[in-house]
Structure formats: C-alpha cells, structure tokens
C-alpha cells in the first residue's frame, strides 16, 4: 500500500483521489478510482445500489481505509497531504475542522438526545469555541438560513419532521465553514415536495460559501440540478466522468445510456 506524503500537488486541486482500491472479501467495491476536485466544485457520484458509491465516499472522508491509493487533500492546517499518511488524530482534526458529512438518514448524522440548537452548535464547540453567546447567535443565524423555526431551537430533533431533520443536519455540517462537504443521498428519504426546497437550499449555500461538495445519489434528477460534474459508477468502477449535462444528455458508455434512458419522465 502506498502511503507516501505527496508534496508537489497542483494547488488548484482541493481533493485528489489516486488509484483508490477497496475490496470487501471477493467483492470489489472501488477499483482504481482517480479524479480531482477543485474549490467551489460540486461532484455528483451516481450509480445503482451496490456500485461502490458510498464506499468511495467513506474512503475519501477517511472513515474506511482503502486497500490501496491516496486521498490527497489540500488542508488549511496541514497543506497538501495524503490523509492516510497523516496520523489518526490529524485526520480526525481535518474531518472536524474542514469537512462536513451529511448522512442519508439524519438520525445517523444528528445527536438525537440533545436539542436541535446544540446539534448545530456542536461543530463550533468541537473546534474550540467556548463562548455561549456567540455560538447561540451563529446557531440562530443558521436556523434562519436553513429555514427552521427559531422558536424550536431548543427542541429535540425527534420532534422535527424528516425534512426539518435533514435541514438541521445540513446546518450542522456547514456552520463551521468547511471547505468540503460529503453528502450521501442527502435527499434520499424525503418527500418530493421537501426535496425540491432542500435542493435549492443546498445549491444556494454551496454557491454562497464557495465550498466543494461530493454528492452520492442514485437520483439522476438530483444530480442534474446540483452537480457540476458527474461520475458514473458500476461494479466499483467509474465508467464515465464529465460535465453533468454532457454525461446526462450525451452519455458515451452503455451503462450510462441505460441509466439515463431509464429515468421516468413526468
């Protein structure tokens, strides 16, 4: 396994994945994945269930060790580094300070036993903020940004609807101004009516904050509206990669053509 430090990287790339491989027993989850992501870019990863999308996302977020390959991140604190060449402590610090991770199920990404406000403020505390008043103020701002009722700031997340929980999760993952956010099916479990609003919100936030995002989804429509670029995965391999509208309107690979032609029209 190659884990050497990478010093001379293109400064433009915020994240570079090189030769990433991951297998679970005989199952190849990710095979030789290579791509780069720039600041402000939104990359969509589409493919059917079991194609390796989420495994790839979790490898990039340092949650799973790949069998081989590098995930090179341009960190504010550490500079350009393969995250797996860093100590676990430094990797956790990057994750805490510079990343967000939005889970498909908000229950996986929220602490259900503390209030919504505390959930949103947690990343601030994790990063050393020790002034309650300042945190409270910023939390209220974020409640408004994601259009949550500020009167409910001290309610527990379980009293929130699915869409509200997901907005809570998004606020929690953006409040500390990360440079990169990983999203795993962020609109997956939501009503279509709630989805649209959330999509617009995420797009606006990403645009206003200039952050980069990697969004795993099996919903082609979500990918079209959010992503600048698309990677299409099948059986652990990237079969097509390009501008979102190119991939969806002029798919080159047989699998992508099948995927695009299978989308229901209304």
């Amino acid at each position: 396994m190659e884990r050497a430090d990478v010093q001379h990287q293109d400064d433009a790339a915020l994240l570079a994945v090189r030769g990433l491989n991951k297998r679970f027993g005989n199952v190849v989850a990710c095979h030789d994945i290579n791509f780069e992501l720039r600041r402000g870019e939104i990359l969509g990863i589409v493919g059917e269930s079991g194609s390796g999308k989420t495994t790839l996302l979790r490898c990039m977020a340092g949650q799973i060790d790949p069998d081989a390959g590098q995930v090179v991140f341009n960190s504010r604190r550490h500079g350009v580094k393969d995250i797996f060449a860093l100590s676990e402590q430094d990797r956790r610090r990057i994750s805490r300070e510079e990343w967000g991770y939005v889970h498909q199920n908000p229950r996986d990404g929220l602490r259900m036993r503390v209030s919504g406000g505390a959930n949103v403020a947690e990343p601030l505390m994790m990063n050393g903020q020790r002034h309650y008043g300042q945190m409270r103020e910023l939390t209220l701002e974020w409640f408004e940004k994601v259009e949550l009722d500020i009167a409910r700031i001290d309610n527990k997340p379980r009293t929130f609807s699915g869409g509200m929980q997901q907005r809570l999760q998004i606020a929690r993952n953006l409040i500390h101004s990360p440079s990169l956010v990983f999203m795993d099916e962020p609109t997956g479990g939501l009503d279509v009516s709630v989805q649209a609003r959330l999509l617009d919100l995420m797009r606006l936030l990403v645009r206003d904050m200039g952050l980069a995002a990697i969004i795993v989804t099996h919903d082609i429509a979500v990918a079209r509206l959010l992503a600048d670029r698309l990677m299409v995965m099948k059986s652990g391999e990237v079969v097509e990669h390009g501008l979102t509208d190119q991939v969806l309107d002029d798919p080159q690979h047989g699998y992508t053509q099948l995927l695009v032609s299978s989308v229901l029209q209304i």
Binding site: R92, R111, M125, M126, D154
Partner: peptide, 22 residues
C-alpha cells in the same frame, strides 16, 4: 476512547450548552 486519546473534548460542552439553553 479516541476522544480521550486525542484530547477532543468539545463534545462535553454540549451538555453545558443544553443547560444554559434550558
């Protein structure tokens, strides 16, 4: 255990935050 090992104690302030909020 990882939090203790890496001195990541921000989480503990959650309980204080909840207390002040309530």
């Amino acid at each position: 255990r990882a939090m203790h090992a890496y001195e990541e104690y921000g989480l503990q302030y959650l309980s204080l935050y909840e207390s002040v909020a309530a």
